[in-house]
Measured scan of single mutants.
Amino acid sequence: SKTSNTIRVFLPNKQRTVVNVRNGMSLHDCLMKALKVRG
Protein backbone atom coordinates (compact mmCIF):
# COMPACT_ATOMS: atom_id res chain seq x y z
CA SER A 1 0.00 0.00 0.00
CA LYS A 2 1.19 3.50 -0.76
CA THR A 3 1.77 5.69 2.22
CA SER A 4 1.20 9.39 1.95
CA ASN A 5 1.48 11.88 4.74
CA THR A 6 -0.95 14.75 4.68
CA ILE A 7 0.31 17.95 6.22
CA ARG A 8 -1.76 21.05 6.80
CA VAL A 9 0.10 24.23 6.03
CA PHE A 10 -1.13 27.49 7.48
CA LEU A 11 -0.49 30.47 5.24
CA PRO A 12 -0.83 34.20 5.87
CA ASN A 13 -4.21 35.90 5.41
CA LYS A 14 -5.99 33.00 7.10
CA GLN A 15 -5.33 30.75 4.13
CA ARG A 16 -4.74 27.07 4.53
CA THR A 17 -3.52 24.36 2.22
CA VAL A 18 -3.05 20.64 2.52
CA VAL A 19 0.12 19.08 1.20
CA ASN A 20 0.40 15.42 0.33
CA VAL A 21 3.97 14.26 0.81
CA ARG A 22 4.72 11.28 -1.36
CA ASN A 23 7.55 8.87 -0.82
CA GLY A 24 10.70 10.05 -2.53
CA MET A 25 9.67 13.69 -2.47
CA SER A 26 11.00 16.08 0.08
CA LEU A 27 8.67 18.28 2.08
CA HIS A 28 10.20 21.32 0.42
CA ASP A 29 9.41 20.04 -3.06
CA CYS A 30 5.84 19.27 -2.07
CA LEU A 31 5.41 22.70 -0.54
CA MET A 32 6.75 24.51 -3.58
CA LYS A 33 4.49 22.45 -5.82
CA ALA A 34 1.44 23.18 -3.68
CA LEU A 35 2.17 26.90 -3.53
CA LYS A 36 2.68 27.06 -7.29
CA VAL A 37 -0.71 25.46 -7.81
CA ARG A 38 -2.32 28.01 -5.48
CA GLY A 39 -0.43 30.99 -6.85
Rank of each mutant, 00 (worst) to 15 (best):
S1P: 15
S1G: 11
S1A: 06
S1C: 15
K2E: 07
K2G: 14
K2N: 10
T3N: 10
S4T: 15
S4D: 15
S4N: 12
S4G: 11
S4V: 06
N5K: 12
N5I: 05
N5T: 13
N5G: 06
N5V: 09
N5H: 10
T6A: 07
T6K: 04
T6M: 13
I7L: 12
I7P: 04
I7F: 08
I7M: 07
I7V: 08
R8P: 02
R8H: 04
R8C: 04
V9L: 03
V9T: 06
V9A: 14
V9G: 00
F10P: 06
F10C: 03
F10L: 04
F10I: 02
F10S: 08
F10H: 09
L11V: 02
L11R: 01
L11M: 05
L11Q: 00
L11P: 00
P12L: 01
P12A: 02
P12M: 06
P12Q: 02
P12R: 02
N13Y: 12
N13S: 08
N13G: 05
N13K: 07
N13T: 05
K14M: 10
K14T: 07
K14S: 06
K14N: 12
K14W: 06
K14Q: 07
Q15P: 01
Q15L: 01
Q15E: 14
R16C: 04
R16H: 15
R16S: 03
T17R: 06
T17F: 06
V18G: 01
V18F: 02
V18L: 03
V19I: 13
V19L: 13
V19G: 01
V19A: 10
V19T: 13
V19D: 00
N20H: 11
N20Y: 09
N20E: 09
N20T: 11
V21A: 12
V21I: 07
V21M: 03
R22S: 07
R22L: 10
R22C: 08
R22P: 13
R22N: 14
N23C: 15
N23H: 11
N23S: 12
N23Y: 11
N23K: 12
N23D: 12
G24C: 13
G24R: 13
G24S: 15
M25V: 15
M25E: 08
S26T: 14
S26D: 03
S26N: 08
L27P: 00
L27Q: 00
L27K: 04
L27R: 01
H28D: 10
H28Q: 14
H28N: 11
H28P: 01
H28L: 12
H28C: 14
D29G: 11
D29R: 09
D29H: 13
D29Y: 09
C30F: 06
C30W: 02
C30S: 13
C30I: 13
C30Y: 03
L31Q: 00
L31P: 00
L31R: 00
M32A: 09
M32R: 10
M32K: 11
K33N: 02
K33Q: 03
K33I: 00
K33E: 02
A34G: 10
A34E: 04
A34V: 02
L35R: 00
K36E: 04
K36Q: 08
K36I: 08
K36T: 07
V37L: 12
V37E: 01
R38P: 02
G39E: 03
G39C: 08
G39A: 07
G39D: 14
